[in-house]
Design a protein around this nucleic acid. Structure first.
Length: 273
DNA sequence: CTGAGCACCTGAGGGC
DNA sequence: TGCCCTCAGGTGCTCA
């Protein structure tokens, strides 16, 4: 489900539902996530008040009045939603936080590639998954000139570079493909051979496509659920991703699928050079 | 340094 | 109808 726009959509949807709420109880039904939940690892959540939700890359950070932060990653299939206590359990609901308004925050994740961990401010600060992240694509720190200068000697394909979280945070497979189509750049191009102007196009396209997806409610895939647990819909129209064999909307050429670093890449062989 | 390959898991979809 | 195969939004490891 979640790339950055989906995670941001979940964040925005959850804020009015959970911020200000006190956690009355925590149930962990399945601790074997990608990073297993330690026994009692979420126990200290009981009694705290949730004070805000931040996002870093595809991680959600739930702040609390106890100085603890609940770090959540949705992996490939993770879902977070707030619902009434009586709502029937869905499959793979691994963690439930009981809130003081009679509702529950539920974490479900079929493939269990996600994570959920409670950290104090020190643990959060030095957490390797967060400390190694590159600049946020939607923050002010992503800079085409800096990227251009930093990549002069690199031969890695631009698509793989975009998906390297140490270089740029939070760019997944879908938006890497979509960004490069908009920028008119072939995914296999070595980063070291991108001109300054090409970098401007990449950064501009990345920001644009992420903004559009967030504006549209972040829905790119079928199993997206919004914060109230209702299914989303295909609100974002993808121009190349999962469109192999179909026509490019800009030039009509047939979109190709290749594999890079084990992931599918989709691109238009005519308008991406 | 690079990237290929694999690992973690379940489920959807296509072909037969 | 069902079985078997491939593939999937993420991340992180080993290995060559």
């Amino acid at each position: 489900m979640p790339e950055l726009p989906e995670v941001e959509t979940v964040r925005r949807g959850l804020i009015p539902l959970v911020v200000g709420r006190r956690v009355l109880g925590v149930t962990v039904r399945e601790r074997r996530l990608r990073e297993p939940i330690a026994p009692g690892g979420l126990r200290r959540l009981r009694g705290v008040r949730l004070t805000g939700i931040e996002r870093r890359s595809k991680y959600l950070l739930f702040g609390t009045d106890a100085g603890l932060t609940l770090l959540v990653h949705l992996g490939m299939t993770g879902q977070l939603c707030v619902c009434d206590r009586g709502r029937p359990r869905r499959a793979h609901e691994h963690v439930v936080l009981r809130l003081d308004d009679g509702r529950e925050l539920r974490y479900a994740d079929a493939r269990r590639f996600g994570m959920m961990r409670l950290l104090d401010s020190e643990g959060l600060h030095r957490h390797p998954r967060l400390s190694g992240l590159g600049p946020e694509p939607l923050g002010g720190s992503l800079d085409a000139a800096v990227l251009h200068r930093a990549t002069r000697r690199l031969t890695k394909p631009i698509k793989n570079f975009l998906m390297d979280t140490r270089a740029v945070a939070g760019v997944g497979n879908i938006y890497a493909c979509e960004t490069l189509h908009r920028a008119g750049i072939r995914p296999t191009r070595p980063v070291g051979r991108l001109s300054r102007a090409a970098w401007e196009a990449v950064v501009g396209s990345l920001r644009q496509v992420l903004h559009e997806a967030i504006e549209a409610g972040g829905t790119t895939r079928r199993d997206f659920l919004n914060a109230e647990g209702n299914p989303g819909y295909f609100a974002v129209s993808l121009r190349v991703y999962d469109r192999a064999g179909k026509g490019c909307g800009r030039c009509g050429a047939v979109i190709k699928r290749i594999v890079q670093a084990g992931r599918s890449t989709f691109y238009c062989p005519r308008c991406q050079r």
